[in-house]
Design a protein around this nucleic acid. Structure first.
Length: 570
RNA sequence: CGGGGUGUAGCGCAGGGGGAGCGCGCAUGGUUUGGGACCAUGAGGUCGGAGGUUCAAAUCCUCUCACCCCGACCA
């Protein structure tokens, strides 16, 4: 491709509205164009990267025996009613009606459709196992699209589904897919960490995310430096720091004028936060829930949601709190009646806590569980934090931000049962197919790669993703002799199938160098008067400072050699 | 949905009751060519939209839409 013909142009400035590195660079490089909030077009250069990602994914999935198919974006809403996910997906589901007022939705994922298809095509254990996948546009009405391609409302996703006769067979499919995914990320040059995850609206029991560790990530990962334990903070377990074990003392009231937060309380009484009890009020499907944890810990709302089996969970409103006669700032489970109380197990790790007196400006010392109060549920509902103990080996946990670039689930029989996808076993009994599903966001991989590989001048594509491998930069194209040599070299590179972007523009060198850096193509070639004199061409890696000189006649073969001996990443 | 912010030329921005501007880009001509070069000339805008106040509104008021950020939410 010739730069002079290329549709997309690089921008000199991008809007201050773009504040994520990948968003800025992709806009600046002319790879994407925003059409609406969370909706983007891919321009020719960006699309070439997308195609590279797709090719890698197809190759790896095909290698595991998966078969590609294609399912519709437009789906009957009724199908979602049958699995109940029209509720659990909630407002994230884009819905619409046709001219006959039939309700439809735009698929945010395809478990319903694939299960329906498999139901009509699989009858016997002989048809299993089965691995199917598609690369398709998905829609999700995100509450807040953000970060350019990182969180969008329309996106291309690879979703794969496995169908097995039993749990043990599912485990095998699951392991196969983990391997396929690892291969995919590694070929994309992205070092990812596999972490335990919450399965959210998809449902199912076991779930893992593939995380790229980078500072711009919006997910938080808790991981162990000593063993292989790693989990999304939503899911992460930890060994909580122990508290003091003392002889229980009699309760006594203490005046705490104006004290409302745990921080204030701890510093006012000169005690560590772990010697206090924290009360938080939630509204779970409209019902008030009283939550108690040790003062040094934070509530994990995902865990709380699971133990409450509720679909809507928010902090309680002021009116709700008032109506229940709770005293925010001095609340405690002492003498509490008629309100569901959930406590974190940390309240058993320690004695003689300071808790609220349930009247303003007073607290109570020496509160002990279960001597002084009871709870309805005593479970783990707090956030794991860096510094706490690894649940597997006890070492000190670390935390890190990451971008979720893939998410896989063991679905079990949830969908097959609801949509009647059964098969006959060898013994002739009817059983629901055991399913798994596996998703990768293409745009996210693209954006994540830019987040991971860039410098102050622009993108630095891994070779496997780069829109072109070679940037042929001819300086002084108005010189007929130079133009002729450049054209010849371009033709040679094209002839051996080298993906080349030929900068044949008449612009000054600075413009071309800057574009070369911005676009992040791995290998830059420069042809100038200076080179012509020595009958050589300058070759430079995007990642390196110094070029090397190669005779023009050997250029094509030298480039081929350079690119094929260099690893996939960079 | 709550909080904050921004909408003025293709892009980036300034202006804040009375002339619609700057930089970049674009067009034409010329000079340039190893890190976004220069000169000259020129095209391009219902100042997001609607209503109001005023002799007069890009500017003040009300409403509305879009986009961004924080939070809530989220395979």
């Amino acid at each position: 491709m010739r730069s002079s013909q290329l549709f997309s142009k690089t921008l000199r400035q991008v809007s201050t509205e773009a504040d994520t590195v990948s968003h800025q660079l992709l806009l600046k490089a002319g790879m994407i164009y925003q059409v609406a909030s969370g909706v983007y077009s891919y321009l020719p250069l960006g699309l070439r990267v997308v195609r590279n990602i797709e090719r890698i994914i197809r190759e790896e999935l095909d290698a595991q025996g998966a078969q590609e198919m294609m399912m519709p974006v437009l789906q009957p809403f009724e199908l979602w009613e049958r699995t109940g996910r029209h509720v659990s997906f909630g407002q994230g589901l884009f819905t619409l009606s046709d001219r006959r007022d039939r309700k439809l939705c735009l698929g945010p994922t395809h478990e319903e459709v694939i299960t329906e298809i498999v139901h009509h095509n699989v009858n016997s254990y002989r048809d299993l196992p089965l691995l199917l996948y598609q690369i398709q546009t998905k829609f999700r009405d995100e509450a807040r699209p953000r970060g350019g391609l990182l969180r969008v409302r329309e996106f291309t996703m690879v979703d794969a589904y496995s169908f097995d006769a039993g749990e043990a067979e599912l485990d095998l499919s699951y392991q196969k897919m983990i391997q396929a995914y690892k291969n995919i990320y590694s070929r994309c040059g992205l070092p990812t960490m596999v972490v335990e995850a919450d399965s959210g609206a998809i449902g199912g029991k076991e779930s893992h995310e593939f995380m790229l560790l980078t500072s711009s990530g919006e997910d938080k990962i808790i991981h162990c430096p000593n063993c292989d334990y790693a989990a999304n903070v939503d899911k992460a377990q930890s060994i909580k720091p122990p508290g003091e074990q003392e002889e229980p003392l009699p309760m006594e009231e203490v005046a705490t004028p104006g004290i409302r937060t745990i921080e204030e309380l701890a510093s006012f009484l000169h005690i560590p936060k772990s010697r206090t009890l924290k009360a938080v009020f939630y509204s779970a499907d409209k019902d008030l829930v009283f939550v108690v944890t040790r003062g040094d810990l934070e509530v994990n709302e995902v865990k709380l949601r699971h133990v409450l089996y509720c679909s809507e969970l928010n902090l309680a409103s002021e009116e709700q709190v008032k109506r229940a006669h709770l005293v925010a700032g001095s609340a405690s489970p002492l003498g509490l009646h008629g309100i569901r109380t959930v406590a974190d197990e940390s309240i058993t790790l320690g004695t003689n806590f300071v808790a609220g007196a349930n009247k303003p400006d007073f607290h109570i010392r020496n509160v002990n569980y279960p001597r002084d109060f009871q709870v309805d549920l005593l479970v783990d509902i707090t956030l794991a934090q860096a510094g706490q103990g690894c649940p597997k080996c006890g070492a000190k946990l670390l935390s890190a931000p990451g971008i979720e670039v893939g998410h896989i689930f063991k679905l079990g029989t949830m969908f097959s049962q609801k949509l009647a996808a059964f098969f006959l076993t060898r013994e002739g009994s009817r059983k629901p197919i055991v399913m798994g599903c596996y998703g990768i966001g293409i745009g996210r991989i693209l954006a994540a790669a830019v987040e991971y590989y860039h410098d102050d001048k622009g993108i630095i594509w891994p070779k496997s993703l780069a829109p072109y491998h070679v940037y042929l930069c001819a300086l002084g194209m108005d010189n007929p002799e130079l133009a002729q040599v450049a054209e010849k070299l371009y033709a040679e590179l094209e002839a051996v199938g080298m993906a080349t972007l030929f900068d044949d523009r008449l612009d000054p060198p600075g413009v071309k160098f800057n574009d070369a850096d911005l676009l992040g193509i791995p290998l830059r070639l420069i042809l100038s008067q200076r080179c012509l004199k020595s009958e050589s061409v300058e070759i430079k890696w995007r990642t390196e400072k110094e070029p090397q000189l190669v005779p023009i006649a050997e250029a094509a073969s030298k480039i081929d050699e350079l690119l094929s001996t260099r690893g996939d990443s960079n």
